[in-house]
Amino acid sequence: MLLRLSTVAVLMFGFGFAMVPFYDQICAALGVNSLVPIERAAAKNTQINRARTVSVEFDANSHDLPWRFRPLVRHLNVHPGELAVIEYEVVNARSHAVTGQAVPSYGPARAAEYFKKVECFCFEQQTLAGGEVRRMPVVFVVDPSLPKDIHTVTLSYTFFEVAGRGGRS
């Protein structure tokens, strides 16, 4: 009896750990909890809608970071579904290397899910040597299913300095 019940206890201890892969499997199977929702990973319709023009405005800020950060074009007219490329320029005003992370935001906020970035400097941290100047591209597509009442989308980036974990150098 003692042995049998202890076995149950040990098995249940193992069960706690068995929940880890089990949980991953369930999340993968149901598509919950993944950062990139499966059905939205790529723009569904790649057809370019030439009948419609959306005005995209670009904005840049840096938060507590001595970087000069600006878009090379302030404004661009694109057709939904069309691949567009623009460039941002960033200058490190400090004399030593600094690591930063750009965080995008959108206006209006509900435009965010229709704004697909194919390539962006915000996908990874940027480390600039002292005084370095860097030009960084953003490649994006505005999804053709963008609601009809949105005529202007503002893409705004804010650079934050990466502190902690190997950041502040």
Binding site: M12, F13, F15, G16
Partner: peptide, 14 residues
């Protein structure tokens, strides 16, 4: 208790 307590032990061990 025999079924549930070991699961908590597992959680805090993790």
């Amino acid at each position: 208790l025999v079924a549930a307590m070991p699961v908590l032990a597992g959680a805090v061990t993790m």
